[in-house]
């Protein structure tokens, strides 16, 4: 996206006061996804993880992120898209939701996009690897579709099992 485009968009948003949000897009296999950029803490290369026994295979393990022990989840394995290979180009997006951090392994990070309310369409009912519970919408960016993911719901879901049931309850209580 060119600078002129972006500034044009921000101008527009100021004038019309539409609900414009920025998203980080990434690819899993052939599909393109986007998450709210406010949840992204940083993007880093994949590095060796410490495996955790008795954890599902999509939880690769934990890494040391400047003194914090952060779990790494490979969404490619979880949602069965693409091939879970690890090389120097493999990317980890570190997500921060409330006080918790999680790294998710993706095939590549593409862009930061701004989407107004009109551009965000309702999510498809099928045809995506993700459960529709974790989807918030769909958007057309240039020539392809981007699926908007509710990363908070995904990370704190029982399905991913990243959070103890008890702490999850407590977290819900807080929010």
């Amino acid at each position: 996206m060119s600078d002129s485009q972006r500034s044009a968009e921000s101008d527009e948003s100021q004038v019309t006061r539409t609900d414009v949000r920025e998203y980080l897009t990434f690819s899993l296999g052939e599909e393109h996804y986007a998450i709210d950029i406010m949840a992204v803490k940083e993007i880093r290369g994949y590095e060796a993880v410490t495996r955790i026994a008795n954890a599902p295979d999509f939880i690769k393990g934990v890494i040391n992120l400047r003194g914090d022990i952060v779990p790494i989840v490979d969404l490619r394995i979880k949602f069965n898209v693409g091939t879970a290979s690890y090389d120097e180009f493999t990317i980890v997006i570190v997500i921060q939701i409330h006080d918790r951090m999680v790294g998710i392994v993706v095939d590549g990070v593409s862009d930061v996009i701004s989407l107004s309310r009109e551009e965000r369409r309702p999510p498809p009912e099928f045809g995506v690897a993700f459960d529709s519970r974790f989807l918030v919408g769909l958007a057309k960016v240039q020539d392809h579709m981007v699926i908007l993911v509710n990363i908070e719901a995904l990370i704190s879901s029982q399905e991913l099992g990243l959070v103890d049931a008890v702490t999850q309850e407590a977290g819900n209580g807080d929010s």
Partner: peptide, 14 residues
């Protein structure tokens, strides 16, 4: 000692 629960959850045996 670093907490595992802070970002993950309790790990049996750890």
């Amino acid at each position: 000692i670093k907490s595992l629960e802070q970002h993950y959850k309790r790990v049996p045996g750890a």
